[in-house]
Amino acid sequence: ENVFHPVECSYCHSESMMGFRYRCQQCHNYQLCQDCFWRGHAGGSHSNQHQMKEYTSWKS
Rank of each mutant, 00 (worst) to 15 (best):
C12P: 00
Q49C: 09
C36E: 03
N2A: 13
C9Y: 00
M17V: 11
G43T: 07
E15W: 08
A42Q: 09
N48E: 07
Q49K: 07
G43K: 07
M18W: 05
K53W: 03
T56M: 07
C36H: 01
C27L: 00
Q25K: 11
H13W: 02
F20N: 15
W58L: 12
F37N: 03
Y30C: 02
E1R: 03
H41Q: 14
H50A: 02
W58C: 11
N29D: 12
Y22Q: 01
H5Y: 13
S47W: 09
H50D: 03
R39H: 13
Q26N: 12
H28P: 13
C12E: 00
D35M: 10
Y11R: 03
H46V: 05
S10R: 02
Q49W: 04
R39S: 13
H5F: 06
C36F: 00
N2S: 15
Q31F: 14
C36A: 00
R39T: 08
H5N: 15
M52T: 07
K53R: 08
Y55C: 15
S57I: 08
N2Q: 12
K53F: 04
H13G: 10
K59I: 03
E15S: 12
M17R: 11
A42C: 06
S16N: 11
S14L: 07
Q25F: 04
H5R: 06
Q26R: 05
D35Q: 06
R21P: 13
Y11S: 05
Q31W: 14
S14H: 09
Y11P: 01
H50P: 02
R21Q: 03
Y30H: 02
H50V: 01
H41W: 04
S57L: 07
Y30T: 03
C33F: 01
C27W: 01
N2K: 11
Q31G: 08
N29Y: 06
A42L: 04
G43V: 04
R23N: 12
S45C: 12
W38Q: 15
Q34E: 12
R21S: 14
N48L: 05
H28A: 14
M17N: 12
D35N: 13
R39W: 04
F4N: 12
C27I: 00
P6Y: 05
R23Y: 07
C33T: 00
C33L: 00
C36N: 00
E54R: 04
S16F: 09
S14M: 07
E54G: 04
G19D: 10
C24V: 01
A42V: 11
N2I: 13
H46Q: 04
H41R: 13
F37H: 08
H5C: 10
K59M: 09
R23M: 11
N2G: 12
S10G: 03
S16V: 11
Q49D: 14
C27A: 01
S47M: 04
F4V: 11
N2C: 04
Q34H: 07
P6W: 08
W58A: 15
E8N: 06
Q26K: 04
E15M: 13
S45D: 15
E15N: 12
Q34R: 10
Q49A: 13
Q34C: 01
G43M: 09
S45M: 05
R21T: 13
E15K: 10
W38F: 14
W38H: 11
N29G: 09
K59C: 11
H28I: 12
Y30E: 03
H46W: 03
H13Q: 06
F37Y: 09
C12V: 00
E8R: 05
E8H: 09
C24D: 03
H5A: 06
F20L: 14
G44R: 05
L32P: 01
S16I: 14
C27G: 02
Q26Y: 05
Y55W: 13
Q49T: 13
R23A: 09
C9E: 00
M17G: 13
G19P: 12
S10Y: 04
H41M: 11
M52R: 01
Y30F: 06
M52P: 02
Y22H: 09
N29A: 10
P6R: 10
M52D: 02
Q31M: 06
R21V: 06
V7S: 11
N29T: 05
Q34G: 10
Y22I: 04
S14R: 12
S47Q: 10
R23S: 13
S57G: 10
S45I: 03
G19W: 06
F37R: 08
Q34P: 07
Q34F: 03
N2D: 02
H28E: 13
M17D: 12
N2E: 12
E8F: 07
Q51F: 02
H13I: 03
C36V: 00
G44N: 04
G44W: 02
H46K: 08
Q26M: 03
S14A: 09
N2F: 08
S57K: 11
G43W: 06
Y11E: 07
E15V: 12
E1G: 04
Y11I: 06
H46G: 07
E1A: 05
V7F: 03
C33S: 01
H41A: 11
S45R: 07
C36Y: 01
G19M: 07
Q25L: 10
D35A: 08
S57T: 11
R39D: 09
C12L: 00
M18P: 14
P6H: 13
T56G: 12
S10Q: 03
C12S: 00
M17L: 12
E1N: 04
E8K: 05
G19R: 09
G44M: 03
N29W: 06
H50N: 02
Q31E: 14
N29M: 10
Q51G: 05
V7D: 11
S14Q: 07
R39Y: 08
H50R: 01
P6A: 13
L32W: 01
K53A: 07
H50C: 04
Y55N: 07
Q26H: 04
S47R: 08
V3W: 04
A42H: 12
G40N: 07
Q31L: 07
G40M: 03
Q31N: 06
G44P: 02
H13F: 05
T56Y: 02
F20R: 15
S14E: 09
Q31P: 02
Q31A: 09
H50W: 01
N29K: 07
H41S: 12
C33Y: 00
E1S: 06
Y11G: 08
G40E: 04
S60N: 05
Q31I: 09
Y22T: 03
G19N: 10
G40Q: 04
M17K: 14
M52H: 00
Y22P: 00
K59A: 13
H50L: 01
H28F: 08
